[in-house]
Amino acid sequence: MKADFEAKRAAAEDRVKNLRDTLERQAAVNRALGLGRVPLLGARITRALDGFGILGSGIRILGTNAIYGYEASSGVRLDPGLATTEDIDLLFDARGGLTFVADDDVSESSLMKILKRVDTSFERAKQTFRAVNRDGYLVDLIRPIQSPPWKKAQDKIGSDPEDLTAVQIEGLDWLQNAPAFEAVAIDEKGEPVRIVAPDPRVWVAHKLWLSRRPDKEALKRQRDAAQAEAVGALVANYLTHLPFDAQQLRMLPKEVVDSAAPLFAKKVSPARA
């Protein structure tokens, strides 16, 4: 039994080595072809969340970083200025609870500990929903406004009192209730990263809604509007299996759906990669 175990272990280790070598060669090809899009730190954070089993099962990628997943699925590249970001937004959905796939260090049960494993300089900011590293890269943990407001809900990944506490933001229930959208993108080193984000149709409608909120800064509203228009055109041209259908977007208010509809009718063709 011992000899059989050792033989199988050696075979498995050899297989892993060969796969790792193949991945490294392909990553070099991807870099040479200029396919890398996802900023390296954001990719490392996303992989860490995936490794602990919470990406797509309690955490989704929001904001600008979701664009990389939409690009990857459509085979196009949008204007780099629309996707440049120095932060990452994580949508926390605690409705079904969270299960960690932990390694030997079972204390890794908080988002802050996961972030510190990626970059030891991450610290919780004064705003307890935010972590920041030495270079000013921000990680925000956000969730929808609780409804009803008196109902108790989980607002942390684990039980660590020093962990990030999700902040409640209006409109996120639309993204939380949207179907999940999964894609494999390529990071700046040429390596793959799985992204789980909300359905791009709902993402576009939400971005357009944000761009029309008077309480947002003018520059942010302009960027939100430009991102909504670009991703809307991407969906209309390349993700044709996702038609702009009101029934499929019933998690959105009717006025939000009606406002976003023109974006999906435009046939503005982004440049292909």
Score class of each variant (00 low, 15 high):
Asp199Ser: 06
Leu40Asp: 02
Leu141Met: 15
Ile195Met: 08
Gly56Asn: 07
Ala166Phe: 01
Thr64Cys: 03
Asp140His: 07
Arg221Gly: 09
Leu35Val: 00
Lys266Asn: 06
Ala183Cys: 03
Pro253Ala: 15
Thr84His: 09
Met1Trp: 09
Ser269Lys: 13
Ser259Asn: 12
Leu33Val: 05
Ala27Met: 10
Phe52Trp: 06
Ser211Cys: 02
Lys17Val: 14
Thr46Asn: 00
Leu252Ile: 09
Ala218Gly: 04
Arg272Leu: 09
Leu175Ser: 04
Ser73Ala: 14
Asp187Val: 02
Leu115Lys: 11
Arg117Trp: 09
Phe244Met: 10
Arg143Gly: 03
Ile67Arg: 06
Val257Asp: 11
Leu49Val: 06
Pro243Leu: 12
Leu219Thr: 15
Pro262Tyr: 10
Phe122Ala: 13
Gln26Phe: 07
Ala10Thr: 13
Gly51Pro: 03
Ile195Val: 15
Asp187Ala: 00
Ile145Ala: 05
Leu172Asp: 15
Asp224Cys: 00
Leu219Gly: 08
Ala72Asp: 06
Ala32Arg: 04
Gly158Asp: 08
Asp135Ile: 14
Glu71Tyr: 03
Val184Asp: 00
Lys152Cys: 12
Ser211Met: 07
Gly171Lys: 13
Ala178Cys: 03
Lys254Gly: 13
Asp119Ile: 13
Val202Thr: 15
Val167Cys: 10
Asn30Gly: 04
Lys152Phe: 11
Asn177Tyr: 04
Ala183Gln: 04
Gly97His: 05
Leu91Arg: 10
Pro149His: 09
Ala183Tyr: 00
Leu210Ser: 12
Trp150Tyr: 14
Glu182Asp: 10
Arg134Tyr: 01
Glu255Gln: 13
Val139Trp: 03
Glu24Trp: 09
Gln26Ala: 10
Leu19Ala: 07
Ser259Tyr: 12
Lys151Gly: 08
Ile54Lys: 00
Ser74Leu: 14
Ile157Arg: 03
Ala226Cys: 06
Arg77Gly: 14
Asp224Ala: 05
Asp105Tyr: 06
Asn65Pro: 03
Lys220Met: 04
Pro200Ile: 08
Gly51Asn: 06
Ala12Ser: 04
Ala178Tyr: 09
Asp258Val: 15
Ala271Lys: 12
Trp150Ala: 14
Ala125Tyr: 03
Gln26Asn: 08
Ala205His: 06
Lys216Glu: 04
Asp103Cys: 08
Ala153Thr: 15
Ser121Tyr: 08
Gly136Cys: 01
Ala48Tyr: 00
Tyr70Val: 12
Lys207His: 00
Ser159Trp: 04
Val193Cys: 05
Arg9Met: 05
Trp174Lys: 06
Ala3Met: 03
Thr22Asp: 05
Pro200Met: 09
Phe181Pro: 07
Ala180Asn: 08
Val76Ile: 15
Phe264Asn: 08
Trp209Ala: 15
Ala102Arg: 11
Ala197Asn: 14
Arg213Glu: 08
Lys8Val: 09
Pro149Gln: 11
Ala32Trp: 01
Val204Arg: 00
Gly58Val: 07
Trp150Met: 13
Leu252Met: 10
Arg213Ala: 06
Val38Ile: 11
Leu111Phe: 05
Pro262Ile: 07
Gly63Gln: 10
Ala218Asn: 03
Ala27Arg: 00
Thr99Pro: 08
Arg212Trp: 02
Gly136Glu: 13
Arg60Asn: 03
Val202Trp: 10
Gln176His: 00
Glu162Asn: 13
Pro253Leu: 03
Glu86Leu: 13
